[in-house]
């Protein structure tokens, strides 16, 4: 078991290093950061001096090694654009992104599971058909468009929900801010959460529906019915419970992608999260932010995958056996 964990950890490290390497290679094509730093009438000599002082003239591998060495000590440098430490910039924005991701995950579960169950049990009803159609929209419409449509309906036409921002936030502790404790904060969460969670919701709905249909055909359900259990007990006590195992796995894994793909939703709703910061840093060639964000996201995925792997190993004795046999 120990060797397994060690090997997994080692693999995760390799993944992160590769992400860093690929990201670093890409930075060479996004443009010259010095142009974004200096004003338009800065003399060339000074531009060259700044480029040199930032180490941008060094060979690629030297720059990369220096970056990894600093990153290993959690030194992510100072943003070219804001001239503030990257760590504090990302830290400031993390609560907004995490809160949004959590609310959309919650939304996708709370809405997606009942819809999935309903469409599985009442396949022929008109409501089930409506749900199916909605799920098709959720899968096929781009997030960007959904966000804009929601804004025009709920903010401009009906005027009930804000079109941008986080509303009033409350500071908890030294760095966490939350919008969950104020009315305007909660209102501001509604549209972005739906926009971000819609795709996951349709995914979960379809997954639940498929699993449910599968389970309902299983022998133990037939036996349960034969024993004269109430339909309610059969559907929710037995069928749904068995459906949820894969759903929870997927939902957990999807949390990573919700955080990573919040970029578009954050931009549409001017949500002050990490994704928006990243997008802005791409436009301004703010390499320290880009690099740190990519590392953070890859760290997130690697951690989630590692946790899932380890959990599986703990839960499933067969996996441990095969690992041992290698």
């Amino acid at each position: 078991m120990f060797a397994f964990i060690l090997r997994r950890l080692f693999q995760s490290l390799i993944v992160m290093l590769s992400v860093a390497l690929i990201a670093f290679a890409m930075f060479r094509f996004v443009g010259d950061p010095v142009n974004q730093i200096v004003s338009i009438d800065t003399p060339q000599a000074q531009v060259a001096e700044i480029r040199r002082s930032l180490g941008l003239d060094d060979p690629f591998l030297v720059q990369f090694a220096r970056y990894i060495w600093n990153a290993a000590r959690l030194e992510f440098g100072v943003s070219y654009q804001f001239r503030l430490p990257v760590i504090s910039l990302l830290g400031e924005r993390a609560p907004a992104t995490l809160e949004l991701a959590l609310m959309s995950a919650l939304f996708s579960l709370v809405v997606g599971i009942p819809m999935g169950v309903y469409t599985a049990l009442k396949r022929e009803s008109w409501l089930a058909k409506v749900f199916q159609a909605v799920s098709l929209i959720g899968i096929s419409l781009p997030t960007f468009l959904i966000g804009i449509l929601l804004i025009y309906l709920f903010s401009v036409t009906l005027g009930v929900l804000p079109s941008f921002g986080r509303g009033e936030v409350v500071r908890l502790g030294s760095w966490w801010t939350t919008g969950l404790l104020t009315v305007s904060g909660l209102k501001a969460l509604v549209l972005p959460s739906i926009t971000l969670g819609l795709f996951q919701m349709t995914l979960i709905m379809r997954l639940v529906r498929a699993e449910m249909l599968e389970v309902l055909r299983a022998d133990y359900i037939k036996f349960a019915r034969a024993r004269g259990l109430k339909t309610r007990a059969v559907h929710f006590g037995h069928a749904l419970k068995n459906t949820l195992v894969p759903v929870i796995t997927i939902a957990g894994l999807q949390l990573g992608s919700i955080i990573a793909f919040a970029i578009i939703t954050e931009t549409v709703f001017q949500w002050p999260g990490m994704g928006q910061l990243f997008l802005r840093s791409v436009q301004n060639v703010d390499i320290p932010i880009m690099a740190a964000y990519l590392m953070l996201i890859s760290f997130l995925f690697v951690t989630i995958n590692l946790a899932v792997d380890l959990l599986y190993a703990a839960v499933d004795p067969r996996l441990r056996a095969t690992v041992g046999a290698h």
């Binding site: 804004i151 941008f164 001017q270």
Partner: peptide
């Protein structure tokens, strides 16, 4: 002063009176 990057959102915020 609020920065709103997206054109459509910025115009929507004006139309909705925000």
């Amino acid at each position: 002063f609020v920065p709103i990057k997206q054109d459509a959102t910025r115009v929507a915020a004006l139309l909705s009176g925000e």
